[in-house]
């Protein structure tokens, strides 16, 4: 894909290694992806695939206690800066300035991101004051404007509410208001609608898309739900055992997954369209996600893959090959399983 200007976020060769009891376990292997301003990349995977660890590593939230070694490059290209900043190279003080201002994050459970003993208006105003140093009264006015922007009814009376007085959907709106207070260039959303009812989920997804259209922020949207992916994302990257195994435009990947793991995942989701039709069995993927401390040899998915060939798939980790139209797939047998016209890689754009 040709990008006219540099991506808002470019991740290169990101690796995360945890150290425990003298043992080193690599949980994230050479992740690379780019997100343009105004674009949404969905990171999909099952539990244990490493999607949340990836997002924590990007935000430098893997603290010293977790004894994680993070290597690679995380280039944030803020609209206010001429040069991209490598988030992994700057010091903690500089990172604190950028976090929340240029790159922000929202989580699955808004209650854990909110302080239970402070009114939500004060919490939003605090973010504004920390980053912009505005006087109290101005910060409060801005908090009110933000609550209005995220669609909270009667925002002026809600400023004085405590988190426990709000519903799950309203809390998530407050957290979104805090994250977007400084109009960040990049928003990382880690399963932000997973704990919500479908009706409220639809409201929050619409809100995020509207805010993105208005601010032009890039969004990294982490989810396990392919329905949500099709709803919010432009592109999708599928993770398995700490690696990206497939990437491409959402329509293309959902319509024609190329990696057997993606195909298996999509096939195992019950279809609303088939509701109430006499039951066939759901397709399943045998076995389960491997332990990162003892990954199988070669392709991490090969022990569960119906297409695996002994001697080929278990000999080396396949490369993430670039195909046409910005698609990438990590499969040794891609050349046999995928029609030739889709395989021919596009000329590399630099």
């Amino acid at each position: 894909m040709t990008l006219s200007h540099p991506p808002a976020l470019a991740v290169r060769d990101l690796c995360v290694t945890f150290q425990r009891n003298g043992c080193e376990t690599r949980v994230i292997h050479d992740i690379d992806f780019e997100i343009a301003a105004g674009e949404t990349l969905a990171l999909v995977g099952e539990s244990g695939s490493g999607k949340s660890v990836t997002s924590m590593a990007l935000m430098r939230l893997l603290g010293r206690q977790s004894r994680a070694a993070v290597t690679g490059q995380v280039a944030l290209h803020a609209a206010t800066e001429r040069e991209p900043i490598d988030l992994l190279q700057i010091d903690d003080a500089r990172m604190r300035q950028l976090r929340g201002r240029r790159i922000a994050m929202i989580f699955q459970e808004p209650l854990t991101a909110l302080n239970p003993v402070h009114r939500v208006g004060d919490q939003i105003a605090e973010v504004v004051r920390f980053h912009s140093g505005s006087p109290r009264r101005q910060a409060r006015a801005q908090a009110l404007a933000l609550l209005e922007q995220v669609g909270i009814p009667e925002p002026s009376s809600r400023l004085d509410s405590y988190p426990h007085e709000l519903s799950g959907g309203m809390r998530q709106r407050v957290v979104i208001a805090m994250a977007l207070a400084m109009e960040p260039d990049v928003l990382i959303a880690d399963e932000p609608t997973t704990a919500l009812d479908v009706t409220v989920q639809a409201q929050i997804l619409t809100l995020l898309k509207t805010l993105q259209r208005d601010t032009g922020m890039a969004m990294l949207f982490i989810t396990h739900d392919f329905g949500v992916v099709s709803e919010v994302a432009d592109r999708v990257a599928v993770m398995y055992a700490g690696r990206i195994v497939e990437e491409g435009d959402v329509e293309a990947v959902l319509a024609r997954p190329l990696m057997p793991y993606t195909a298996g995942l999509l096939a195992s989701v019950p279809r609303l369209e088939r509701a109430g039709l006499p039951g066939e069995r759901l397709a399943t993927i045998a076995g389960r996600v491997p332990d990162p401390a003892s990954l199988p040899a070669g392709c991490s998915f090969q022990p569960r893959c119906t297409f695996a060939v002994p001697g080929t798939c278990d000999s080396a980790v396949p490369a993430l090959a670039s195909l046409k139209a910005g698609r990438r797939v990590r499969c040794t047998r891609a050349h046999e399983l995928i029609p030739a016209e889709e395989l021919s890689p596009c000329p590399q754009t630099s």
Partner: peptide, 24 residues
């Protein structure tokens, strides 16, 4: 109708959605 309309599915993109306002 509204509950079913809110379900995101891989097939339906940009469909007409009946949006319920507020919470239960």
């Amino acid at each position: 109708e509204a509950l079913m309309s809110a379900v995101p599915t891989p097939e339906r993109r940009a469909h007409q959605r009946i949006m319920l306002e507020g919470d239960i």
